[in-house]
Structures are given as structure tokens and as C-alpha cells.
């Protein structure tokens, strides 16, 4: 190889190293820009609206009253409902796939759960409207729109997240622990709930938290089935609204820079902070505990 060739190879090497570093830095740059721009827009809300009223008021009647509690409670309620319904089912599905299902069943289920992710959120919403809504409406003799329907649809939507992460966590438990338990005469179920679940607990908790993060940020499907009434849900089946649904429905009707519009950005900022704190919780609490135990 001539010197010139070598030099040009080294120059290329350096060039691409910088390209890759810049790409990586771009990812950080993007998330910081999102935080800065959304917070800057959102925090302008409190030039016109009382911080206290926004966070404690229960009446949302812009441009007069800006009590955002119904949306906050709505978001938290659908999320809890989704995880209460979808969490146990997802964990059971993950245990089934990881430890019980024969290989051919597993070969069917793995791509099947991938397809759940592939179904678009608007389609989930549409199925909720056309299939689940009439059923709920019939049994509650109400309109059917509301908290419960949103929770059911979200529970289905978070299944793939919960299943795939917790299945990975269960599979990561060393086979030797399982063998050790069987060699003491434990049944499969005893091995699962006394050894595998405790050993993979940080991963399982991570799966549930990420499922909740997905649920609280979901917009389209929820907006299609929750009823979009800016008030606290009177009952489990009552119509209400969430932070995401209020944003998607009101953003187009409010002029940029108006207090109402800013308030929508502040809601987005709140959602952003919730999802970021979930990641930090996973990284620095859930997984830190794992490290300490070993």
C-alpha cells in the first residue's frame, strides 16, 4: 500500500469516526431540544393562568376557567386501568412463552405479539368503537364511551411491550438456577414463582413501567373511545378526557400563543416529564437495586 493510499484510508477512518460521534450526539441534541422547546412554550401558560388553579381546579372551561385536574386524573386512571388489566395478562403470557409453551407454540406466539405492535393505534381505536363500544353500551345501558373502554383498549395495546420485555427478563435468568430448583424436587410452578420471578423482578417491573409509559402517552385510540368530556368520570364507565386527548382535540381550534394553546403545550410538557421520570426510575431505582443485590 502506498503512503498516499494509507493516508487517505486514515483520513476516511477519522472522518467516519466523527460522523458516528456526531450522529450519536444528535440523538442527545434532539431530546434536549424537545425538552427545551416544549417546556418554553408550555411554561408561558402561567403568565395568564394561575399555576394553582391549573393543578387543583376541576373545572375546565377555557378561556375562563383552567382547572386541568380532570385530564390529569383521566390520564392516571386509564393508565392504572390498563396496567391492572393488561399487566397480569401480559406477565402470564410472557411466563407461558418463556417457560411453558412447547417450541412450536412459541414460534407462533413470538411473531403474533410482534403483530400486535404493528396494528396502528387508530385501528385499535376503530375496533374499540365498532366492536367493544356496542357491547359495553348494551351492558351498561349508557353510551359506552368512557374510562373503562379506554382502559380495555390500552390494556390490549400495552400487551406486546409487557410481554416482550418480561419474556426477555425471564429468559435471562441462568438455566442453572432453574435446574437447581428442579433438583430439589420443586414443581414447575414452584420454580417459576419462587426462583424465576424473584430473579427477574427488575426486568418484570421495567416491563410494567414501560407498559404504563406507553399507556399514558397513547393518544389516538384513547381519543376515539373515551368520550372526550372535560370532566371527572362519574363512574368506571363514565366519559372523561385525558391530557393527550385534550391536546389532540383542542390544538387545532386554538390560536398559537393564546393561554389555552399554551396550556395544551404545558400538558404535553407534563406528559414529557412523566415519561422521562419513568425512564429515570427504571434506570436509577429498579436496575440499581439489581446491581446492589449481586
Amino acid at each position: 500500500m502506498s503512503n498516499r493510499q494509507l493516508n487517505s484510508q486514515l483520513a476516511y477512518d477519522k472522518l467516519f469516526r466523527y460522523i458516528f460521534i456526531i450522529s450519536a450526539v444528535m440523538v442527545s441534541f434532539v431530546i434536549f431540544s424537545i425538552i427545551i422547546f416544549v417546556s418554553k412554550q408550555g411554561l408561558q401558560t402561567f403568565q395568564d393562568i394561575s399555576f394553582w388553579e391549573f393543578h387543583t381546579g376541576t373545572i375546565w372551561n377555557p378561556p375562563v376557567q383552567f382547572g386541568a385536574v380532570p385530564f390529569i386524573v383521566g390520564s392516571v386512571s386509564v393508565t392504572l386501568l390498563a396496567i391492572a388489566l393488561g399487566g397480569p395478562l401480559g406477565l402470564a403470557g410472557a411466563i407461558f412463552m418463556a417457560k411453558v409453551a412447547p417450541p412450536w407454540v412459541r414460534e407462533i406466539m413470538r411473531p403474533a405479539t410482534d403483530l400486535f405492535v404493528g396494528i396502528p393505534s387508530v385501528v385499535y381505536g376503530w375496533v374499540g368503537l365498532t366492536v367493544f363500544l356496542p357491547i359495553i353500551s348494551k351492558y351498561t345501558s349508557g353510551p359506552g364511551f368512557g374510562l373503562f373502554l379506554a382502559g380495555v383498549i390500552l390494556a390490549i395495546m400495552i400487551l406486546p411491550t409487557v410481554i416482550s420485555i418480561s419474556e426477555d427478563a425471564l429468559r435471562a435468568v441462568p438455566k442453572s438456577l432453574e435446574a437447581g430448583s428442579y433438583a430439589l424436587g420443586a414443581t414447575r410452578w414452584q420454580t417459576i414463582y419462587r426462583v424465576l420471578i424473584p430473579a427477574s423482578l427488575p426486568g418484570l417491573v421495567t416491563a410494567l413501567i414501560l407498559g404504563m409509559a406507553r399507556a399514558i402517552g397513547e393518544t389516538m385510540a384513547v381519543a376515539m373511545v373515551i368520550g372526550n368530556s372535560p370532566q371527572l368520570a362519574g363512574s368506571l364507565f363514565g366519559p372523561t378526557a385525558t391530557l393527550t386527548t385534550e391536546i389532540i382535540l383542542s390544538m387545532g381550534q386554538t390560536p398559537f400563543g393564546s393561554p389555552w394553546n399554551n396550556a395544551l403545550f404545558y400538558m404535553a410538557f407534563t406528559l414529557l416529564m412523566i415519561s422521562l421520570s419513568m425512564i429515570l426510575l427504571i434506570k436509577f431505582v429498579v436496575n440499581r437495586r439489581l446491581v446492589n443485590e449481586q
Binding site: 441462568p174 442453572s176 438456577l177 435446574a179 437447581g180 430448583s181 428442579y182 433438583a183 430439589l184 424436587g185 420443586a186 414443581t187 426462583v195 424473584p198 430473579a199 443485590e293 449481586q294
Partner: peptide, 20 residues
């Protein structure tokens, strides 16, 4: 088989204590 393994136990090549 569970009862059999209770009577005939096994120690493995690498120590495999449970994480407890």
C-alpha cells in the same frame, strides 16, 4: 418425577445459589 428428584438430589458443576 418431582418426588423422584426430592429423593435423588443434584449438585451442579458451577455453584448455582438462588439470588436470595
Amino acid at each position: 418425577v418431582v418426588n423422584l428428584r426430592k429423593r435423588v438430589g443434584m449438585v451442579f458443576q458451577r455453584p448455582n445459589p438462588f439470588p436470595m
